[in-house]
Design a protein around this nucleic acid. Structure first.
Lengths: 246, 246
DNA sequence: GAGTGGTCTAGACCACGAG
DNA sequence: TCGTGGTCTAGACCACTCA
């Protein structure tokens, strides 16, 4: 496609090969950018631009002041539409660890529309940050009207489920879950929190769940780094023949 | 969040303001990068880095040899899960124009799994490229087993629907549509085709539709630029009370 | 303080688009 | 051919991490 392949892509390809062939192992730091630049005989600018390609692919994580870290093979997480839980693809490996910060606040801006509540009404925010090993993995902000919010949410747990399960147990049965999915670059705050480059795409899911009366019982803003998450949705066009399970 | 805001963000913010306040109008070219660099008293490198922020937001489209073009306000397109059609949010404005290239090929790689057909079996590919005005908008590759593929697909049409409708009329009624959604940077080919930077996130949707017998009648690989498309999914948890409409 | 990445400069040279 | 953006250089200086 490119008649004159740019040096940064040549270098990126080379480093990618070294990683995929195991010459550089996951969890290790690459040589410093200065060293790599001289090894490839390019300027630091060009070398950094090569690394940014790998960063955009999620292969490498930069940590300011420490180095360029080869990430563990992205364990993709499956977000299942409608189910309101994350599910790790290979639960055999180290589970995600989730920390939760609970905040009481008043509905404002976008929240008013999402939850369908009056402005300034009481809302509880659950800020969930999940980690995979030492690397931040994903971010969720879950909003629940105060009168529906549980009081004893654990602030830390080993697996995403337990937090969301706690929420699930305490809310009325859901009737409908609507999800809006978009791909965008992370905001600077999100990039800093998740320690990803602003070049890496994220999957932003806005989820609104309502009960049988049509009342919105939960709104969630999920931020899943694109290299580590897929979302799956199934639409059934045989409503009268569907089996009971799901 | 940043104690020392970087110049590129300051510049990006300023240009963004000029665009959003109408000081620079959609469809116009920005001054050349050299001019902008001297106006902001920064190096061309820094200025380009500022523009790349706006490019990542989809506000600006770079065209090599011509300039930096202020894109029309992204008209977001809604992809509705399960429906197998794109729907423009404001059909009042100029409709999307879709060109289709039909190719006969043999199933290979990923296609074999998606379609559930033997290797090298006959498959028809519909390569759909939609345009919004002069800018490429989105890309779809639709694969149909040869024996189900229609023969008279128009190669160009005014609206996405007509192509997909043609396909829809000729295939058996769908029973289930499964969709996998992920966010990733575009491949170099996709970036070139859609004339977007490789920094702009895309929404990649893999759709597999099967009929009542479980046979896969269509697989589609959709590439929707993140700044111009959202995907919506609705999950109904009241299977026995659902109304017939949708 | 030593070493790392982050930002930025002031250019050079190449590739593309249009006349 | 001219003006545009694309790539790259060889540094400088700042911010962060860790000992």
């Amino acid at each position: 496609m490119q008649s004159v392949p740019s040096r940064r892509h040549v270098i990126a390809d080379d480093i990618r090969d070294r990683i995929s062939t195991g010459l550089i192992k996951a969890g290790e730091y690459l040589p410093s950018e200065t060293q790599l630049a001289s090894r490839y005989a390019v300027s630091t600018t060009t070398l950094r631009s090569a690394l940014s390609v790998l960063q955009g692919e999620g292969l490498v994580e930069k940590i300011h002041g420490k180095g360029n870290f080869v990430r563990y093979p992205p364990r993709r997480v499956a977000y299942v539409g409608g189910a309101c839980t994350l599910r790790t693809e290979s639960s055999a490996r180290s589970a995600l660890r989730v920390s939760v910060r609970t905040t009481n606040l008043q509905a404002h801006g976008q929240l008013i529309d999402l939850l369908g509540v009056p402005a300034s009404s009481a809302v509880t925010e659950f800020l969930c940050l999940s980690h995979e090993g030492k690397s931040p993995h994903s971010l969720a902000r879950i909003y629940v009207p105060r009168d529906l919010s549980p009081t004893d949410v654990p602030t830390e747990s080993r697996c995403c489920k337990s937090v969301e399960e706690t929420l699930a147990e305490l809310r009325p049965p859901l009737a409908e879950v609507r999800e809006r999915v978009c791909a965008r670059p992370p905001t600077p705050e999100e990039a800093a929190t998740l320690r990803i480059s602003s070049a890496l795409a994220i999957l932003a899911i806005t989820r609104v769940a309502s009960d049988r009366t049509g009342r919105v019982v939960e709104a969630a803003l999920l931020v899943l780094p694109g290299d580590r998450a897929d979302a799956f949705f199934t639409t059934d066009h045989m409503p009268h023949e569907r089996t009971s399970g799901e």
